[in-house]
């Protein structure tokens, strides 16, 4: 007995077939013992389910329902009638988009203006920090480090040993290190710095000096255009400065 036939048996037992279909099915069932048994089972189920419709009496009352409704403070909500032509629900979207766009365009430049202060006149930004005293560094004794002959020759010796494709050698570099390890070689370094690297000069050049900076003509000058016009000519004032360290450029 296949599923479809069983379904038809159930429909027959529960009265869901037309009279013609029911008659046809009854004929088929009579010649099939298994189908007859299934039909009997379905009919018994149907009868049993009908009997289950009997239920014990309830104790529901109008008062109970009224109390439940009053306890929640409920009232039936009125129906919201939609009136044609007065429904502007769609309008809020383009209006909101326009307002948002205007707000963004107004807020963005203001936010950028507060990030840096533009100073048009350099005279207003004179630094209050006193200039540092010049630092003079001198060596009491000249350093006495000089390479001996062994080291000199090793330094000029071409590299020995195989190199990998990446330029890093393994065995060769180990041999190289062994040769120059401090335990095996006595290195005597005696180095005299050349004249142009003397520390006094370096320190003197490194000393911050505002006067020097402002009057130094070796660097190209920086011109600042003032915001106030010249009283005689009416043209904007221009000031030449040697350094831009106190000037904020931007805007």
């Amino acid at each position: 007995m296949n599923g479809k036939f069983e379904e038809k048996l159930a429909r027959l037992a529960f009265g869901d077939l037309t009279p013609e279909e029911a008659e046809r099915m009854e004929g088929k069932v009579q010649s099939n013992a298994k189908a007859a048994q299934a039909l009997t089972e379905f009919r018994q189920i149907r009868a049993g389910l009908r009997d289950l419709a009997e239920v014990p009496e309830h104790q529901l009352s109008n008062e109970r329902l009224r109390q439940a409704i009053l306890a929640r403070g409920l009232e039936p909500e009125p129906i919201k009638e939609r009136r044609a032509g007065r429904d502007f629900g769609w309008l809020w979207m383009p209006v909101a988009a326009a307002i948002l766009g205007v707000a963004i365009m107004n807020v963005k430049p203001r936010a950028a203006a507060h990030t840096a202060e533009i100073v048009m006149n350099p005279s207003l930004v004179k630094s209050s920090i006193p200039s540092a005293p010049p630092i003079n560094i001198t060596f009491k004794e000249e350093p006495r480090y000089a390479m001996n002959d062994t080291v000199k020759s090793a330094a000029t010796e071409p590299h020995i040993g195989p190199r990998s494709a990446s330029g890093v050698s393994r065995g060769g570099s180990r041999r190289h290190i062994d040769r120059f390890s401090p335990g095996t070689q006595d290195i005597n370094v005696n180095w005299n710095p050349p004249e142009k690297f003397k520390l006094e000069d370096v320190a003197e050049n490194a000393t911050p000096n505002k006067d020097t900076l402002l009057t130094d003509n070796t660097n190209p000058p920086i011109m600042l255009i003032g915001s106030t016009p010249d009283t005689e000519t009416g043209a904007p004032t221009a000031t030449e400065v040697g350094s831009a360290s106190h000037v904020v450029i931007g805007g």
Partner: peptide, 27 residues
Amino acid sequence: AYQMTSRRDDAEDIVQEAFVRAYQNLH
């Protein structure tokens, strides 16, 4: 409700709740 719950008190509670909700949502 009784067929679904098989308990009288549960069924009564469900009926009450159903009518309360119906009243609230009549619209």
